[in-house]
Design a binder for these strands. Structure first.
Lengths: 123, 123
DNA sequence: GCCATCCTCAACCATATGGTTGACGTCCTG
DNA sequence: CAGGACGTCAACCATATGGTTGAGGATGGC
């Protein structure tokens, strides 16, 4: 699985999104992170593993009680993907609007010209 | 499942991300969308259903051969969530930097003052 | 050095996911 | 109106996911 897929998958689960949200307030140990949930510590540990493999979280060391740290920069991978296609879609809407405006203008000037499939392959 | 979860889940699958990417080039029928993949049309139809339930995609009508349309605005729900916590994390780093700078200045001026847990609850 | 605490690993279970094939409904064509 | 093309529905299968419990491995305090 590629990292982008791992990132989206990681943030699919509401518990994991909540963990990320809490980590923006500062590093925390697994125990601290697990405390608020009505769920076993092992389950939270698994969630953290998923976040870690997605690159969203890191551990200071393999040590006992070592704090979990949020790696906020990897968010950019997702926003990068999203914004790219968001922009592309908007770009297309603008072109479509321009095209429709041009068509309106032409029909207002002289009516149909015999060329009637201007949308094909352009929009 | 809440919409945010559905959105992240929808974009987890590379095939669905690719469908979204292609829809930024313009609306398309299910058949057109399914053609490039080494996969049954039914499978692509399922993927489109997932995208539709996440709000990322809409159909012109229940009709035969009706085009699939991308709803790019819902991207904002995700970027909104991501950017919120991205900002929160950065905000925290700035506060931490400021605190460390203040500590350095103080120790440079007069050494320890006896109050030695300034990080607790602040970072 | 011992023991409690923190955390992870492993096995297990229920359900969700992503794919298949086959059957069916609906529309456009002739 | 008969037939083919397009799309979805349903059943099925393999694997992934999110949770549980039980056991075990390090660490740190005493």
């Amino acid at each position: 699985m590629d990292q982008l897929s791992r990132l989206f998958a990681a943030l699919t689960d509401p518990t994991r999104r909540d963990l990320v949200a809490r980590l923006t307030e500062g590093d925390a140990t697994v125990g601290e992170l697990a405390a608020p949930y009505d769920m076993s510590v092992q389950a939270v540990s698994k969630h953290l593993k998923v976040l870690e493999q997605a690159g969203l979280v890191s551990r200071a060391g393999p040590a006992h009680r070592s704090p979990v740290h949020l790696e906020a920069e990897v968010f950019d991978l997702m926003t990068g993907w999203i914004e790219r296609y968001r922009r592309r879609a908007e770009e297309r809407y603008r072109r479509l609007d321009a095209l429709l405006a041009a068509m309106n203008e032409r029909t207002a000037n002289e009516g149909t010209t015999g060329d009637e499939q201007p949308l094909e392959g352009t929009a």
